[in-house]
Amino acid sequence: MTQAHQLSPSSPASSASSASPTGRARLMDGTGLARRILAETALRAAALTARTGTAPCLATVLVGADPASVTYVRMKRNRCREAGIASRQVELPAGTTTAELVRTLTELSDDPGVHGILLQHPMGEHIDERAAFEAIVPEKDVDGVTLGSYSAMSFGLPGFQSCTPGGIMRLLDAYDVDPAGRRAVVVGRSAILGKPVGMLLLGRDATVTYCHSRTRDLSAEVRRADIVVAAVGRPELIRGEDIKPGAVVVDAGYNPGNVGDVHFDSAVERAGLITPVPGGVGPMTIATLLEQTVTGAERRSER
């Protein structure tokens, strides 16, 4: 697995403890950590641009005009500019067919000026999502969505991590949370979040349990967890009484009204560490995406 560039030990996040002197959970500051990752990414991008004359480039493909997606893509474009990464936006009509989308992604995969490709969700129910993802070559799959990337994550081989799971692991590292020997419960089993974060935790020697809509007595499973990753897309599903005292709680949900999958006000009273929503996992996703784009550009320059 690609080793992430580590923050220096003097980083405020790296010295954080999972214990809280006030009895309330300490917040895992994804915004601050992402800011430091992006600052380091910008330095790497500038150095590469100076050495090769070509800036790292991220191509974003958007099918249709979903308002949330448009806003998200605009935010990513702004972050690219701040980090010295060129941004190429490809906007396709909502009626684009799978074949047309695959052709566009294949062209971007073959374009030497593009170092990373992001296919934005949602694409429309008529699109064969898996076929579209697989049109992205592994060396440009900086969002970690292809079967090749998932296999690499699962087997600990070189490749790009799914961005949200990769960002979650960076948060755990920054707050000195070692998954080894701990019981981790992942609530959710999506292909780009739940499943890969579980594999990354397993690769770090955690004992991993996946929970989902068919899980019996979800609360009992969560109460046994030293690390909880909520990634199911149901607002405030996980309640404070479900949290083991002192557990690490990572809320990867984002629902209307800035509400996560964890009931924050009750969970913060029992957890040792917890991510806020917003300001926790979200910023780490974008930081990981841009960091991996620069990594892809660096690798290409070394060929």
Rank of each mutant, 00 (worst) to 15 (best):
A55L: 05
A206R: 05
R300T: 13
A247E: 12
I136T: 04
S14Y: 05
A131M: 07
A86S: 14
R189T: 13
I85A: 00
R44D: 04
S8Q: 03
P21L: 12
I192V: 14
V177T: 09
D261P: 09
T97R: 08
T2I: 07
P67A: 12
G23L: 09
R26K: 13
A99K: 12
G253Y: 04
M284Q: 09
S17G: 07
A94H: 11
G194W: 00
R26E: 13
E82W: 09
R79I: 00
V185N: 05
A267E: 13
R74I: 03
T285P: 01
S69Y: 05
A135D: 13
A131K: 07
R79E: 06
M28K: 03
A287I: 06
P112N: 09
R182K: 15
T215D: 06
G167L: 12
Q292D: 09
G144H: 02
P283L: 01
T293M: 10
S11M: 07
R103P: 07
R44F: 05
G148T: 15
T54R: 14
L7Y: 05
D173E: 15
K244Q: 07
Q161W: 11
R44E: 06
L290T: 03
V61T: 10
V186I: 10
M284F: 10
K195R: 12
C211V: 00
